[in-house]
């Protein structure tokens, strides 16, 4: 029994090392000289840590601009999505209105359609609104998500209707009931949806690639992709730049990982 346990741990450690190796290799390479990086056999740790690589990579492309854009877009889409979802989820969970089932079913069905199919008409719409290559294009289409509405509705619905009717009898308005009872009660679901949206927005690539066409508007992943195709970029700087993109989400995840894990475990669908 004991030897079986040890075998389980050995396998898990080997697996964990495989998962971590790319991250380790990224950071290790980011500290090497261009010459050392290309040496064979490769060195596991840099002989001399080249801190200057990080500064050079940061200055080689407008990464500060990319970072600001990524932060603005992630926060704006996440806040917007939470507000629109909280309001809509309340209507679906507690209000009585005509066509509720039909509307819910139609919206649920839209979730089956691959988002890639919608890129073309959405690009045309944004061109007509003269929003291409603005924050508007990066933010507005993502201000609502039926997935978030769907998840929140389940959470709101778990609060008994009797409580809602009692609150109404006591003179509380819908608005007060929503923000003082339902929202605090669904705090962990809301946090999870928010975190998944920040991660998704931060890492999204195809849409920002298509709707931005100047350096000024690029987000980090698009900026990194452009940087990688610049001539003369060496692997240490490319790895340092990749770390810029990855690090904020990894730090956030490590700090808040119980919410992220709980969110995925409860919904079971990709954010």
């Amino acid at each position: 029994m004991q030897s079986k346990k040890i075998l389980v741990y050995i396998l898990l450690v080997l697996g964990a090392l495989t998962m971590l190796l790319p991250f380790f290799w990224m950071v290790s390479t980011a500290f090497k000289t261009g010459f050392e990086a290309l040496q064979t056999p490769p060195t596991w740790l840099p002989k001399h840590f080249q801190w200057g690589n990080w500064v050079r990579a940061w200055q080689a492309a407008p990464f500060a601009t990319y970072l600001i854009n990524s932060v603005v877009v992630s926060l704006a889409t996440t806040l917007g999505q939470l507000v629109t979802s909280i309001l809509a989820a309340f209507a679906f969970a507690k209000l009585n209105f005509s066509g509720k089932k039909v509307l819910f079913t139609i919206l649920l069905a839209t979730m089956m359609v691959p988002g890639e199919m919608l890129i073309i008409p959405n690009f045309v719409t944004l061109s007509e609104l003269h929003l291409v290559n603005t924050y508007g294009a990066l933010i507005v289409p993502w201000l609502a998500s039926f997935f978030a509405v769907f998840t929140l509705r389940q959470s709101f619905a778990s609060v008994p209707d009797q409580l809602y009717y009692a609150a109404r009898l006591d003179g509380a308005s819908d608005w007060q009931f929503l923000w003082r009872v339902l929202v605090p009660n669904a705090k962990s679901t809301i946090t999870a949806i928010g975190l998944l949206q920040i991660i998704g927005s931060w890492n999204s690539f195809m849409w920002p690639l298509i709707v931005t066409n100047t350096e000024k508007m690029r987000t980090l992943p698009v900026g990194l992709q452009a940087f990688s195709s610049d001539s003369g970029v060496q692997y240490p700087e490319l790895m340092a730049a990749s770390t810029f993109v990855i690090l904020p989400m990894v730090v956030m995840y490590l700090l808040l990982n119980k919410y992220v894990v709980a969110g995925i475990s409860n919904t079971g669908i990709k954010g």
Partner: peptide, 22 residues
Amino acid sequence: FRTLYFMPFVTSVVAISMVWRW
């Protein structure tokens, strides 16, 4: 272990693909 195994999920596909390219 769970935290470590899950880490690739939160990383940017583009950035980690650069690492794999290397």
